[in-house]
């Protein structure tokens, strides 16, 4: 009797589980595609001179406090992104550092700030939608009024980008939001706006990708031109300067003229656009002469962890079908067994 009920219960439970799993056939969640209007940054380590104008401009545009790392606190010296710093330029050094952009006995500069992933872990992890990805521009934003401060985003981001202000009783996450608060005035990311060399360039990801590919196709030492500031597609430029232009036209016309290009010489690049494929793609793309792993960027697979995690969740809990089926089976079994026991145990009730 006991054995039989045991067997029946296992069978019923198993059937329910199988039914649940079958009714939501592997709701595999693919890595999200890039939003068509996605905007982002192109960082070219070879063009960067390490002036850190972008770090200062970022602080100013976002009202972030200074951070000191030297004994005499003369100037803002952040060593890494933090609760007070959204963007830093770090140096790579090796041996006697005699040549720029060389791995051996060389040095290079690298930017660290939010990558604005196409399929961000932080957004998938956040339980309260405080991290969101804009459907149109793809900018990953943070809303402190929604945030519960669980720091799942901090732990989940493969680039270690979101930072948290542990020292405050009212802490919050800090991370680059691509200066979206400046977009409405026709302005763009402050780091790109001030960068003297165009090492940090703002624009549509599709345009930036093209520019990156153009640079990779150049022969080292070849004469060329580099844009700086906000890089637009050729067709957009036609709209520039329309007199009395309103709305879209006027915005497109902001600070984009011939003076924003300068002649230069192509450097020695690795044939790799970091962020094109990594992790399902990122909206900050990077070029470099030194391997990205040496510069502190992980070698990531093309599938985002968000896609894996959500596939798992959807398979188990999609439409709550499996849990409800299992609950039904459990209720049925428990009801019979509890009743059975009530009859037996009535004597001491």
């Amino acid at each position: 009797m006991d054995r039989r009920t045991f067997f029946k219960a296992s069978l019923a439970g198993g059937t329910a589980l199988a039914a649940g799993a079958a009714s939501c056939p592997a709701q595999a969640r693919e890595t999200h595609p890039m939003p068509p209007e996605a905007v982002g940054l192109l960082f070219d380590s070879v063009l960067c001179v390490g002036c850190k104008a972008c770090v200062a401009a970022c602080k100013q545009a976002n009202g972030m406090p200074m951070e000191f790392s030297t004994k005499d606190q003369y100037w803002d010296t952040p060593l890494d992104i933090s609760g007070k710093t959204l963007n830093v330029i770090k140096a790579y050094r090796n041996g006697n550092m005699e040549a720029k952009d060389r791995e051996e006995n060389g040095f290079a500069f690298i930017k660290k700030s939010c990558m604005h992933c196409v399929d961000p872990s932080c957004v998938s992890a956040c339980p309260v939608s405080a991290m969101r990805k804009d459907a149109k521009t793809g900018v990953v934003t943070y809303d402190k009024d929604a945030c519960i401060g669980c720091r799942y985003c901090v732990a989940a981001c493969p680039f270690g980008v979101p930072r948290f202000t542990y020292d405050s009783p009212t802490p919050q996450i800090s991370k680059c939001q691509l200066c979206i608060h400046r977009h409405k005035d026709g302005k763009y990311a402050a780091c790109a706006e001030v960068c003297p060399t165009g090492a940090t360039l703002y624009g549509k990801v599709s345009v930036l990708r093209e520019e990156a590919k153009r640079r990779l196709a150049l022969k080292p030492g070849e004469k060329t031109e580099f844009p700086r500031g906000h890089l637009r597609a050729a067709e957009e430029k036609a709209l520039r300067g329309a007199p009395e232009g309103k709305g879209e036209q006027r915005r497109q016309g902001w600070q984009d003229d011939g003076a924003q290009r300068y002649p230069g010489v192509a450097g020695q690049y690795l044939q790799h656009v970091y962020g094109e494929k990594e992790f399902g793609g990122t909206q900050m793309l990077m070029l470099s002469g030194v391997s990205f792993q040496k510069l502190g960027y992980p070698d990531l697979p093309p599938r985002s962890d968000a896609a894996t995690s959500e596939t798992l969740q959807h398979t188990l809990y999609g439409g709550l079908i499996a849990p409800i089926a299992v609950l039904g089976a459990l209720t049925f079994i428990a009801r019979r067994n509890v009743k059975h026991e009530d009859e037996e145990g009535g004597q001491h009730g």
Binding site: P127, S129, D145, C147, I148, C150, P171
Partner: peptide, 19 residues
């Protein structure tokens, strides 16, 4: 960190079911 917001987890509009 922001414990006073913890109820957001249960609140439609905030709750993020993929998490």
């Amino acid at each position: 960190g922001r414990w006073w917001n913890f109820w957001h987890i249960f609140w439609p509009g905030y709750a993020q079911v993929n998490s």
